[in-house]
């Protein structure tokens, strides 16, 4: 059962997940002593047995990478952190129920912005995740979120914005003025899960028009 942390030894046992990299984090409490170490267990919701996470036993760290152990995004997991001092477990605390599909946040995309004279090209690079497919290849965000699309906004001198969106990875804003500064914002959206990344921002200047010189 969940042991109440009456001694202020252990706080905020919580999963932090972005792009399906699932890190369990916690904090020591005011009553902690330098000799204290931590043991991490995890299990699938609905199963009886807790499993020890190798590499996070008797650790002084306050985080533990459980990406592979919690990688099945159709499953739900719990983690448990216990505090050990002089070989004796003093207290422990359970995380909330975790599911990476629900809880992961999406990082900004990697984008290359290429200025031309009257246009700007934007090439969005695929985002690979630690999640493996059945044949062992790393899944991209596009493969996990079926409804994923990209939204591109080009801000034109604080007056209006040009807007493109779609599932492809190559875009071009046309009809621009040469030798002019633009600000591009590119975000990844997975609307079914109400997920939206922070924008990748690129500041870019169109090339001068030398046709008449």
């Amino acid at each position: 059962t969940l042991t109440e942390d009456a001694f202020g030894l252990l706080r905020y046992v919580k999963f932090h997940s972005s792009n399906f990299e699932n890190i369990l984090m916690w904090d020591s409490g005011p009553a902690s002593t330098p000799d204290m170490v931590y043991n991490v267990l995890y299990k699938r919701y609905g199963e009886t047995e807790w499993l020890a996470k190798a590499g996070c036993q008797r650790t002084k760290q306050k985080s533990c990478n459980l990406t592979m152990e919690t990688g099945n995004f159709t499953e739900f997991y719990y983690a448990n952190v216990s505090v050990v001092s002089s070989g004796i477990q003093i207290t422990s605390k359970r995380s909330e129920r975790f599911n990476s599909l629900q809880h992961t946040t999406i990082k900004p995309p990697a984008v290359t912005c290429i200025p031309q004279v009257r246009s700007i090209q934007m090439l969005i690079h695929p985002t690979f995740t630690p999640v493996l497919s059945e044949d062992g290849h790393q899944l991209t965000l596009e493969e996990i979120f079926q409804d994923l699309f990209y939204r591109l906004e080009l801000h034109v001198n604080h007056t209006y914005l040009m807007h493109l969106e779609g599932k492809q990875r190559e875009y071009e804003f046309l009809g621009l003025t040469p030798d002019t500064q633009f600000l591009g914002y590119i975000t990844i959206l997975a609307p079914m899960w109400s997920k939206e990344s922070a924008p990748y921002v690129c500041q870019v200047k169109t090339l001068p028009d030398r046709t008449w010189t």
């Binding site: 034109v156 209006y160 914005l161 807007h163 009809g175």
Partner: peptide, 8 residues
């Protein structure tokens, strides 16, 4: 919320 470019 903000002005949007429709077409060139």
């Amino acid at each position: 919320d903000s002005p949007v470019h429709l077409e060139t």
